[in-house]
Amino acid sequence: MLPEISLNILDVAQNSISAGAALTEITVDIDSVSDTLTVCINDDGCGMTEEQLLAVTDPFYTTRKTRKIGLGVPFFKTAAENTGGSFEIASEVGVGTKVKAVFGLSHIDRMPLGDMVFTIHTLVTLNSSIDFLYRYTVDGKSFTLDTRQFREILGDVPFNVPEVSEYIKSYLIENSEEVNGGRSF
């Protein structure tokens, strides 16, 4: 198991990168009224066939050649379902894939959200040729990180130069703290 929701997101988002996505949208929406924590990962990658889609939540399915087990998606699904939540995955070849996991926010078995700053910072700075849209919401208050916006401002200055990388990290930290308002999830 991956012990934090943020690690599951990092893992599942790698599938979007492998699928050749130009834009991957990641949203985390925490709502204490409905008592849910909802994660969506949507990409415009190559998508999956119906057959692949049926197989992807099966731990004994993987596209890689090195071994016959693929645990990323099954881990994420089980983690959500164990908290009274739900898991959906939809995909279309040539269009992209949508993953949605709903966790019971106050459920005793819900793993901590963990370090989302690291997850997003890693995805953005190590894959600087593709775009990410991240939205983090707590009880209706939210912030957005859009690499397309960054790219427009930066021009040919890449995301992985230290000054920019540091800016992206503190952008994530400061804005998350503001949205969290002293709470942690």
Binding site: F143, Q149, F150, I153, L154, G155, V157, V161, E163, V164, Y167, S170, Y171, E174, N175, E178
Partner: peptide, 14 residues
Amino acid sequence: MKTLEELMAIRNKM
């Protein structure tokens, strides 16, 4: 909140 103006400043510097 961290603003995009700061990023603009970094870019101009870099």
